[in-house]
Computed example of a mutant assay.
Amino acid sequence: MSNDTTLVLGATGNTGRRIAARLRLRGTRVRAASRSSRTPFDWFRPDGWDQVLRGVTTAYVVPPPVPGPAHEFVARAAAAGVRRLVLLSGRGADDWGDSAFGLDMRSAEDAVRGSALEWTVLRSSNFDQNFDGPPFRAPLAAGELALPAGAVPEPFIDLEDVADVAATVLSEPGRHAGRIYELTGPRALTWAEAVELISRAAGLPILYRRVSPAEYTATLVGEGWNEEEARHLAEMFVLLEGGVATRPTDGVATVLGRAPRSFEDFVVRAAAAGAWSR
C-alpha cells in the first residue's frame, strides 16, 4: 500500500462513492470528503479546505455548483503539496460556446488546466443512472418522462465506467498527465429510444413526451426545484439539441482497454432491481 493519500471530493455522490470504493480495493489511502462525511468539505466554506488538503498528494475534484471557487481551491491544493488533480467535467465542454450551461464546469477546467500541477480532465456524457435515480426515476415510474429533447441522440454512459476510468487515472501518476478524456457509452440513443428500452425491460407502459424548455423549467419549479437550477438543467437540453455531443468516443477504451458498458446492460440491471416498479 502506498503512503500517499488521495482526496475524493463529493465522496457521497454518484461518482465519488464509487471511486472511493475502487481506490480502497486497490490499496490506496483515501480521504473521502463531502458536506456530510466524517471529513467535511464545503465549496462555500474555504476556511476548512486546508485541513482537508493536508497530506494529500492526489485529488479527485467534482466542480462546485458556481463558477469561481475552484481557482482558490487549486491554489490552496498546490500550496498544500498536492501534485495531481483529476477533474470531472462535461462532454464537449470546448464546444459549448456562449451557452449559459456549464459555466461552473468551464471555470473549474480553467483552474485545473491553468495550474502547474499534473492534471487530467474527464468529460462525461449524461449518466445512465440518471434514469434510475434523480431526476428521471420518479416520472418514469409514474409512466411518462417529459423533456425538452427531440431527435438528437446522446451517448449515455454508465457511472460504473466513469468510476473505473477515474480510479485508473488516479492510480497511474504520470501516464495521463495533461490529457482530456471524453467519456461516452458505445452508441448514441435519443431520449425517446432510451425510454422505450426502459419500458420494454421493465414490462411497464412508459411514454416519452417532448416539451419546451420553458414548460420543463416550470414543471421543475412546480416540483420544488430552485428556479436557477431548473433553468440550468433546461439549458443543458437546449445545448444538446445543437448536436455538440452526439458521437460516441473512444475515451473509455483508451484508458481501460475495453469497450464501455451498453445502455441495455444498465437497463437490464436497473429493471431487475425494481428501479421503476410501481
Rank of each mutant, 00 (worst) to 15 (best):
S124W: 05
Q129C: 02
R123E: 13
F41Q: 04
H232P: 00
L145F: 15
D250E: 13
L189S: 08
P69Q: 06
D128F: 13
T15I: 15
F101G: 03
I198Y: 12
V56T: 05
E241M: 07
P148N: 13
Q129F: 03
D250S: 14
V82I: 11
V61W: 07
G203A: 05
D4Q: 14
A214G: 11
D98R: 15
D4P: 10
T168K: 00
G48Y: 08
Y60G: 01
L197T: 11
G97N: 09
A21Y: 10
T184Q: 01
T5H: 08
G242V: 07
S115A: 12
E144T: 14
R84D: 04
L159W: 05
E223W: 14
D4W: 14
M236C: 02
R83C: 02
V267M: 00
H232F: 03
R261K: 02
F101W: 15
G97C: 08
T246K: 05
P205V: 07
T15S: 12
N3T: 15
G133C: 00
N126I: 14
V62G: 02
I157T: 11
W43R: 04
P248K: 05
V121W: 08
L103V: 13
W49D: 01
S212F: 15
A75K: 12
G90P: 01
R113G: 11
R29C: 03
P153D: 04
R83H: 07
V255F: 13
R54N: 13
L23I: 15
A11Y: 14
L53M: 07
V244E: 06
Q51T: 12
G90L: 13
V112P: 14
A234N: 03
W276I: 00
G143M: 06
D128E: 05
V86I: 04
S125M: 10
D47T: 11
R200Q: 15
T120L: 05
V66Y: 12
E223D: 06
G203D: 03
N226F: 04
N14T: 15
A75W: 07
E118L: 06
G274L: 00
P139K: 04
L53H: 06
T57R: 09
P67R: 02
A275T: 01
G114I: 03
G178D: 11
P67T: 02
P260Y: 11
D164N: 08
G185L: 04
P69F: 11
S124G: 10
I19N: 02
T168W: 00
A59L: 10
G55P: 05
A78K: 13
E109Q: 13
E144C: 14
L256W: 14
E228P: 00
R38T: 12
F156T: 07
P69Y: 10
R278H: 04
A75L: 10
N226P: 01
S171K: 07
